[in-house]
């Protein structure tokens, strides 16, 4: 009797193991598993284009504060610069200038847009950002960080950026 059980034990265990592994009882892969894999393999493309404009070149085009608003430098990396717009010590918006050559396709959305701000094509991004594209390359983004900073405020602040100056920038 005991020998009989021993003889079928190993095949039963094998079947159980195969069944369990076939069932895939682990957690589902993350929504970011694909991008994690792509950006960590040996010849992954760099995140920032080699010839992207240094963020420091953008600083002079950002507006200064005034009328209760302070404009504070926040980030300056290759291809990117960001300033914070604060009111009474509270952050209400951010202004960013991006070199779109690092993100292929990020300038395409402007082609379909007929809307303009100060003569430059503009789009809304999500619910909280307004963007314009300058000289087919540099993107200016104003994002609301507080409900008090409306779409109208975003459009007004985009025009405080020296867009004409930015459009003549040769990297």
């Amino acid at each position: 009797m005991f020998n009989h059980w021993r003889r079928i034990f190993a095949p039963m265990l094998l079947c159980l193991v195969l069944f369990l592994t076939g069932c895939n009882l682990g957690p589902p892969p993350s929504r970011y598993a694909e991008v994690q894999k792509e950006t960590t393999q040996r010849n992954a493309a760099p995140a920032v284009a080699k010839d992207a404009t240094q963020g420091g070149q953008f600083n002079k085009f950002f507006p200064k504060g005034g009328a209760g608003y302070q404009v504070v430098a926040a980030q300056e990396k290759k291809g990117f610069a960001e300033y914070k717009v604060n009111k009474d010590g509270k952050n209400v918006a951010t202004i960013a200038i991006t070199d779109t050559t690092s993100i292929p396709g990020s300038a395409d959305k402007f082609k379909a847009s007929e809307a303009k701000i100060a003569g430059f094509p503009t789009v809304e991004k999500g619910a909280n950002s307004t963007e314009v594209l300058v000289s087919d390359r540099y993107k200016v983004t104003v994002s609301s960080k507080d409900p008090s900073f409306t779409q109208a405020d975003r459009k007004a602040w985009i025009q405080k950026v020296n867009l004409t100056g930015l459009s003549s920038l040769k990297s």
Partner: peptide
């Protein structure tokens, strides 16, 4: 402040791409 899942996915992917580039 965004809630659109496709936009969240795009943002997440770009953030991960930036992090994974050591030179950044």
């Amino acid at each position: 402040g965004e809630t659109d899942e496709a936009l969240i996915q795009q943002i997440g992917e770009r953030a991960i791409t930036l992090f994974n580039d050591k030179s950044q």
